[in-house]
Structure formats: structure tokens, C-alpha cells
Design a protein around this nucleic acid. Structure first.
Lengths: 321, 321
DNA sequence: CACGGCTCTCGACAAAAGTCAAATTTGCTT
DNA sequence: AAGCAAATTTGACTTTTGTCGAGAGCCGTG
């Protein structure tokens, strides 16, 4: 596991190369090893977070549209990934941006809450490594079944690994079959402590889910398509950390929610920086709900979604006046 | 001044290359420019701080000796630059390390106090660029005459430039000819405000000067060698931000100090993180004085100095028991 | 409107970095 | 103690990156 012979050497090589600006062959002769080894050590140094290469995300917040969004929705900061040019796959662009923003927001000693989903896992997957000591990554909600690699615990662990941080997993299922069982489980000391610790986080990372048959809740069997549809007609507007919220961003009063083991919305709102990342345009309504509920202070979206949000805000104020 | 045609392009190129991991030729075709231009933009991006490459300084604090120093002197953190191998010039190594540490300690929105001297200027000179928004770099003491490029205002401005921060200079001489004049000048609103603002800093960067004829105070003509010698016999142990301190790290009661326009020691002590960097082994006594006076919470030194400090601490405790 | 002076851009070459399979070392088991 | 597997190192090769001088475009000026 531990890179035994090196670690020290990796550090030295990285130091000479990146801090002092020597060439690889100079480093090699200093350290009495071959250039090839130096190149290999340097790659390891980058992969381990011993050296850190980060790009300023300024460009994406400086945008005029980002400013207007901040004002319109009272958000602390908004980043907009330009959908147009750049790359083939726009959603990758959003994830890359989100990962950079995330690393920029994370500080040493922080406690970071992480939810789950395709978006979160994609971010974890492309996120570069960092050397954040004393960071704890906590899982915001219970687990669900296997089929997906972006299970809650996977997301938490992967991000913890990238940050060289400690991952705190949640050993409980996301959904139980009866309300009673959920209640007793929540009362268990291990679980209770974990849930209580969520409000102490400095930073949260999550996305929001749509209320439709494509939802992971349906795909994982937590809810049937029919149940989902029923919830929708009861006012379900989105999914946050495995829980159903209504259009106001409040928890929906339903049996499902009472059977879930997850962070209370109040705990989430207590977290200073709540970074929400939304990739799909289809998540417009859920996102509005999450914003309305104050579940998001920092937002990363694509240009198209940004436009829709602004349009919506414009229409709302026009109607109001 | 501003790189007009690019700025945006630089950002985009940096983003595609560093965040997305494309090759230069791929970036070039995305942006419809030549590879050569891309290479040039990327250099600019690095030079501007749009991208940031930093190496963890862990290795230098993890050292057992560093731990012992922290304990022995009650410091928050100590970094030791290994004097032995590495590079031809050990003092460069200390400066490079100090610059990395400094950048690691500096946070967005900080107010940073900077003193002057060869050490500080060397650090400024080799420090890489960063994109710290809303940072203010303030000068800790008045200015002195021209001959040196490491004048107080130079140090402040250079560091501000590297950080893309605002530099707040001090338009007053370091030493005046009479105590009265110094007193009136200190009472001037402009000066008073600047002095008062020093205690609000989050981070300070300085070294400590020796009390001898090689001191810059002598070289700049602020004090004659004879005066310096006299001060030494009066108990002068070191120089901090242009002021003379005694072995306890308190301000020395002397005419010179009363004629100086500089940060009060109490203001310096009010700064949370006081980063002191010492390159020369000859500054052993001055450093002890500075530490005794609580003028240093974070310390960067060479291995040799670290050993001497530990030896001293060991002897002191042995004597005490 | 032509003329330097300026910066930006590009193509071609040189230098540096990345990669891979083979060789060597290391650690552990039988 | 020998044998095997995993990890590490290296030399030789390929790809990528950096650099330089020439040329092109863009002003403000005479």
C-alpha cells in the first residue's frame, strides 16, 4: 500500500522539480537515480497531492450572468460552465469546474459532508488529488443497494481518498421498510452521533435529484415508478440526500421520508458552505426547490441552466411588480 | 500592461490544459490557434497565478527535529530546510521553502504585514505568483534610503504584485532625526491609520536582523557602526521591522527606537500568524530574542540553526532542573 | 497615407518529458 | 535456502513541450 522506498524520495524530487524549478535530469543527478524514475516519482507526487496544480475558477464567476444569478437568488457565489465551445461533453465540463471549485472551497481542518449520485461521483472521479490534512469527509445519508458505483459510501470514500482525508461512513441503509425501524435506528448511538455531526460541517457537496422514473431512488428499488409518480402528485419537487423535498424546499410529509436515514434539512442548512452542482437541464424544477429551501449557497451549473434560472427570476419579479 | 488580446484566451487555455488535461495541440485546435501560442499562454497563466502549482511543505514540518523545536519553544509550526544535500546554495533553499510556506499560510481576504530585509526580498523574488483576491499587503515599517533594492516599500510591492493583491505603502521614513518629529509624524492621520491597521493583519512575514556593523541599518546610514556597538552594550539583541529589541524580545529603551516609525511590538504580537524566516546562522542570538518576545509563531530555518536552537533549549532545561 | 515601433502569431527546430518492456532488486513463502 | 511474485529501476524510444526568429497585424505620428 504505502509506497515504501519512495515517499521521501517523491517528496524530494517534487520539491526540487516544482519548487526549485530544476529539470528532471538535474533532479535525477541530484538524487542519483535515472530520469525515468524522476518522471515516475513526479507523476506519483501529482497523484498523491504532494504537488497541487490548480486553475483559478475566476473566469467562471466573473461572468456577468453569474453575478445576476447571485443577486436574483441571494447566493454567495455562482459558477457557470460555458456550454458552447470547449469540449464534446458539456457535463464533463461542469464536473471539472465543480471539482476545482470544491477544492478551492475546502480548507485544512474542515469537515465536509458529501451526498451521492451520478453527479457527485463524476466529480469525485475527475477530481485531482490534494493534501488536505485533518479533513474529515462525512457521508450525509444512508446507503443503498449495490448496482451503482456511485453509492453514498463510494462517493464519500472516493472523495476522502482524493483529499488524503479521513472518510466517515454511515453504516445504515438509506431506506427502511417501516417507520418504526427507521426511528429506532436513528436513535442508535452510532447513527445518532453521525447525524448530529452533520451540522458541524464546514462544507457540503451535493446535487439534487429529479422526481421521475429515472431517479436513482427508483433504479435502486427504493421506490417504484408508481410510488414516485404518486409522490410527485403530492408535491414532490426534488431529491436531496435521498429525501424528497417539495417546491418550497421543505421536507415532504410522506411515509417514504419517515423511513429514510439521512441528514435533516436543518442540519444541512447549518452548514456554512453548501455547494450544489447540477449537470442536467432536466433538473430545473428540483434546483428551484432546493434554492427556495436555502439548501444551496454556492452553485455550479451549465450556461443553459443559468439562462433558464435567470429567465425564471425575471418573470417572477415582473409578475410581482 | 494588461494582456489585452488574451486574458480570456489565457484562461481558457489554462483551463483546458490543466483542468481537463488536454494536450497543447488539442487545446490549440479547440481554440483555433497554434500550439506555440498555447505554450506561450500557459507560461503566462503560470506567471500570473491563474494556475497555481504548489508543493506540499509537509516533509519539512514532519521532521522530528521540527516537532521538538515546536515543543521546546512553544511555536505553532516549524519548517526545517535540510542544509546538507539539495542545492549548492542553502540559503536559496530556505527562501524557496519560506515562499511556499508563506503561500500556504496566506488565505483569500487576508491582510498581510511585510517587513523588509535581504531575506524578505529574496523570498519575494523567488515566490511564485498566486491569485489571491482581496488580499492587502501592508508595510510594517517606514522606508529608508535608496541603495538597496530590498527597501521596505519594494518588499511590500513585490509581494503584493506576486499575489495579485493590493499593496499598502508607508510614506514615511523609517528613522527621523529627532524624537519630537517622529512623535508628530506618528500622530499624522495617514501614518496613524496605517500603524493602527497593522494589528488587524492575519499574517506577518519578517526576518530578524543582527546587531552588528553588517546590519542594513548601518549600511543605510540610519545608525553608525559606533552607535550600533553602543546599542549592543546597552542590551540590543536584534532588529525587528527596523526596531531594536533586547534579549527578552522587548523594545530597547533608547533614543533610536523613539525616532523610528514602525509597527509596535504589541501590534505585531496581535497578528495571528507571525512567520519568521532566518537564513544566516549568525542570527542565532537575534532569533532567540525574537522568539522570547513572542514575535514568532511560525518559523522557517535551516537545519544547522535548528540544531543550535535545540541544543540551547536542552542546555537551558538542564540548567533549570 | 506611409512609416516606424509595438505586440501578437506562427512554423520549425531543439529540448524536455512521458512511456514501455526488459532487467534487477526486494520481500515473502515453501 | 531456493523459488516465486511483486515492485522498482533503467535505457531506449516516442511524444509532447519550449523557444526563437521571421512575418503579420495594429496603432499613433509625422
Amino acid at each position: 500500500m504505502a509506497i515504501r522506498p519512495a515517499e521521501q524520495l517523491i517528496h524530494k524530487a517534487a520539491w526540487l522539480y516544482y519548487a526549485h524549478g530544476l529539470r528532471q535530469d538535474e533532479v535525477a543527478s541530484q538524487l542519483n537515480i535515472s530520469r525515468a524514475s524522476v518522471a515516475m516519482y513526479l507523476r506519483k507526487a501529482r497523484e498523491t497531492g504532494i504537488v497541487n496544480i490548480s486553475t483559478s475558477t475566476q473566469l467562471f464567476t466573473d461572468d456577468a450572468m453569474a453575478r445576476r444569478l447571485e443577486d436574483a437568488f441571494g447566493l454567495d457565489a455562482v459558477w457557470i460552465a460555458p456550454e458552447n465551445a470547449y469540449l464534446a461533453d458539456p457535463s464533463t465540463d461542469i464536473a471539472v469546474l465543480a471539482a476545482s471549485v470544491f477544492l478551492e472551497l475546502a480548507k485544512k481542518g474542515d469537515r465536509i459532508g458529501v451526498a451521492w449520485g451520478r453527479t457527485v461521483y463524476t466529480i469525485a472521479d475527475i477530481m485531482s488529488f490534494a493534501d488536505l490534512q485533518d479533513v474529515t469527509v462525512v457521508q450525509l445519508c444512508g446507503n443503498l443497494g449495490a448496482p451503482y458505483s456511485y453509492r453514498p459510501d463510494q462517493c464519500t470514500m472516493e472523495i476522502a481518498r482524493r483529499l488524503n482525508a479521513k472518510g466517515l461512513n454511515f453504516y445504515a441503509p438509506l431506506v427502511l421498510s417501516t417507520e418504526e425501524l427507521a426511528k429506532s435506528l436513528r436513535a442508535e448511538p452510532v447513527i445518532r452521533d453521525q447525524l448530529a455531526g452533520i451540522a458541524d460541517c464546514d462544507l457540503a457537496l451535493y446535487s439534487v435529484g429529479a422526481v421521475d422514473a429515472d431517479s436513482h431512488l427508483v433504479k435502486c428499488g427504493a421506490l417504484s415508478p408508481a410510488e414516485m409518480e404518486a409522490l410527485r402528485s403530492q408535491g414532490a419537487a426534488g431529491v436531496i440526500a435521498g429525501q424528497i423535498i417539495d417546491a418550497r424546499g421543505e421536507i415532504l410529509d410522506c411515509s417514504y421520508n419517515r423511513r429514510v436515514i439521512s441528514a435533516e434539512l436543518a442540519s444541512l442548512r447549518a452548514i456554512e458552505k453548501r455547494l450544489m452542482v447540477v449537470q442536467e437541464d432536466s433538473k430545473f424544477e428540483p434546483l428551484l426547490a432546493a434554492i427556495a429551501g436555502g439548501l444551496c449557497t454556492h452553485l455550479v451549473v451549465g450556461a443553459h441552466m443559468a439562462e433558464r434560472l435567470l429567465q425564471h427570476a425575471g418573470a417572477a419579479t415582473k409578475k410581482a411588480s
